[in-house]
Simulated scan of single mutants.
Amino acid sequence: THVLALEQLGAKVTATDRLEFRAPKLAGADVFLDEPSVTATENALVAAVAADGVTHLRNAASEPHVQDLANFLVALGAKIEGIGTNTMIVHGPATLGTATYRIQPDHIEVGSLIGLAAVTRSPLRITRAGVEHLRSIRMGFERLGIVCRVEGDDLIVPSNQTLKIQDDFGGHVPKLEDQPWPAFPADLMSIAIVTATQCEGVILMFEKMFESRMFFVDKLIAMGARIVLCDPHRAIIAGPSRLHGATMTSPDIRAGMAMLLAAVCAQGTSTINNADQIERGYERIEERLNALGAKIKRVPERKG
């Protein structure tokens, strides 16, 4: 998607042992992204701001962090229409200046903290949570019996949660599935799976967007979770399960954070290898969770 978008704007791309992009001059174009990729949209957006002429970015991602980048570019002097929609119109080339800009909250981190509060049955106030972007996330957690309260721009997770999975109409087994924004985010499916292990009832988790996101559930099963992995995209979780400590390896950012949540609520000690992955999406995570009462210790990786 990145390559196709930049090619449509005039870049020449060659692939040998590396990708090489050459563009003496970018030109505005009618660009259709073959999938609404967040980072591909952001790359195309930045390129379009520098390109000569008008660019239409269609099937663009519209997640809050894409909106944040677009609003930042506008603050610098870019002319962008349709921010927050799947079609953005960029008038280039822009003459950019300087600006002071406050980065918006990370809705994925907020959703992860909701899961943390739920699995530890702890009250939590998340300040400056960006509540306007949390509708689908809150709806997803409400399906697991977790209800949050809004106070201004703070999100409060009370401790007296039912943690009872809500049946679908007619008593059918409920389903939680991800889709492109503004639906429930793919990056929170791993967190929702761990949270569901601590909730009463049965739920089907349907990961539609990525092929390998479910492949960490064997680690949760080893900790005592009752999960049936149906295929690379679907898993059935029955809870609640009493988890116990285990040694795990983080395959990616979101699964790593999910493992951390499982370890925090499990009995005993857990070890998570390849923990640097987690910090790609969660800055100073052990410092902040320890301030909330967790007991997390960073240790050097063993060699050999």
Rank of each mutant, 00 (worst) to 15 (best):
L188W: 07
L188I: 10
M189C: 06
V194M: 11
V194S: 05
T195R: 03
T195E: 00
T197W: 02
Q198T: 15
C199P: 03
G201V: 11
V202K: 13
M205H: 12
F206A: 13
E207Y: 03
K208H: 13
K208R: 15
M209A: 09
S212P: 00
F215D: 14
F216V: 03
V217I: 13
K219T: 10
L220K: 07
I221Q: 11
A222W: 01
A222T: 06
M223N: 01
A225S: 02
I227E: 03
L229Q: 15
L229I: 09
D231H: 02
P232M: 09
P232N: 08
H233E: 09
H233Y: 12
R234Q: 15
I236S: 02
G239T: 12
P240W: 11
S241G: 06
S241A: 15
S241R: 06
S241N: 11
R242S: 14
R242Q: 15
L243K: 04
L243Q: 02
L243P: 02
T247I: 12
M248W: 14
T249Q: 11
S250A: 14
S250F: 01
P251M: 05
I253V: 14
A255W: 07
G256L: 09
G256F: 11
G256Q: 10
M257T: 14
A258E: 09
A258T: 12
A258I: 12
M259G: 01
L260R: 02
L261I: 03
L261Y: 11
A262Y: 01
A263T: 00
V264Q: 06
V264R: 05
A266N: 06
A266E: 05
G268D: 04
S270H: 06
S270M: 05
I272R: 06
A275W: 12
A275R: 08
I278D: 12
